[in-house]
Every structure is written in C-alpha cells, then in structure tokens.
Amino acid sequence: MRTIKALKADVLFQLKQGFYIVYIVLILIYMLIISQLPSDASKIAIPLIIFGDPSIVGFFFIGGIVMLEKIQGVLQYIVVTPLRIREYLLSKIISLSILGEIAGIIIGATTYRESINWLLLMVGILISSVFFTLLGFLTVTRSDSVNEYFIDMIPYMFIGILPCFSLIDFPYNWLFNIFPSVLGLRLIFGAFYGISAANVSFFIISGIITNILLFNYTENVFENRIVYGGESK
C-alpha cells in the first residue's frame, strides 16, 4: 500500500521534471526513422531500439532522480518515515518500468507490420528494465554529481551491455543467460520472431531469480550507504 503511495509520488515527480514530454518526442523520432527504413532492416532495428532505449531508460534517469532527492534532502526525510527502503526502491523501479513499457509498446505497435507477442515483449522489457534500474541504484550510491555518475556507470554498463553480444552464436554463449539484460533482449527478440516455450519459461525464471538476488543486494547496499551513512552495524 505504501509502495502505491510512493509510486504516486514518483510519477508526479517525473511528470513535473518533464520526463514524459521528452520521451514522447523521442518516440516520435524513433517512429519517423523506423518508418523510413527498408522493411528488412526495420525488422531488426525495432527490437534493438526497444531494447536499447525503453528498457534501459531507467539506468539513465534513476541516477539523476536519486541524486536530486539526496541534495534536496528529501531522501534524508524519507528514511525517517515508515516507508521501507524496499518500498522506496520498488516504487522507483515500477515507475521507470511503466515508462519503458509504454514507450516500447508504442514503438512496436506503430512501426511493426507483422504480429507481435505483446505479453512476451512486456515481460522482456520488464526484466531488463528492472535490471538496469537496479544497476543505476548501485551506481548512484557512490556518485554525488552527474558527471561522476556517468563515469561510475561505465563498469555497470559493461556488466549490462557486453553480455548481450552473446546473442551472436558462439560456443558456450548460453552461459550468459544469467544476465537479465541478455534474457530481456532474447525475450524481446522472441516477441517478434517467435521463441520456444521451454526457452521462455527458462528465461523468465532465470531473469526473475537474478533480479530478485540483485534487488536484495541493492537494498542492502542502499541501506548501508544512504540510510546509515556508511556506518556499519
């Protein structure tokens, strides 16, 4: 229940920061570009764009949001309310995932001429969006300025993006299927091109497990660094 309240706060905050308007403009541009591509190219470009922007957008924005809450002191106040850190993280993740889902669906619906497995697309966006937003949380616990955030992002970026090249076939590339980013990308591609039921269930379960583990870890790190200011037990 508190999470819903926090979600309301986050959406209001993001609305006032102009996220949605900027995002609408970007989506329109994507739509324009995709519509100009030859249909062979657009078949590959659409899933890549959906993965490359809507499902990663949280990584980009979460740093700014948390830093601003730190500077304005809102975060300092939130920790003395009954709102749990878990709920705080969750509401931010949900709000940014919703943004990604909506953007992804709009891009897919307006540009792709053949049928899409919508449920699969949404699950794929969700799994990678949760993952990238969590990476963003981990990044921002260290940084106090935007430029610092960009630098601190780099290692996490590697963790998130590099394994995605495992989609290109090479021996043992399935080992990279523990990375939710890879799984998300595979599911998104699956939504467009089809994917076996066994793979879907394996990818989803694997993605959920990794994300939950990462969530717990993030909650711990966040609590130690932000709430308790780095002082241990």
Partner: peptide
C-alpha cells in the same frame, strides 16, 4: 522529525509535499 534543513520536494506544491509524505503513515 524536523531537521534543521528544510528537505522538501522543490518542484511540488506545499500541499503536495504534505499529502505525499503523509500518505506513508
């Protein structure tokens, strides 16, 4: 708790600030 530094959402109105935080209780 009232800290010595007013930690409020700058972009929200006074009433929004109160209602949002109030909803956590």
């Amino acid at each position: 708790v009232a800290f010595d530094f007013p930690n409020l959402y700058q972009k929200l109105t006074a009433i929004e600030n109160l209602k949002l935080i109030g909803s956590y209780y």
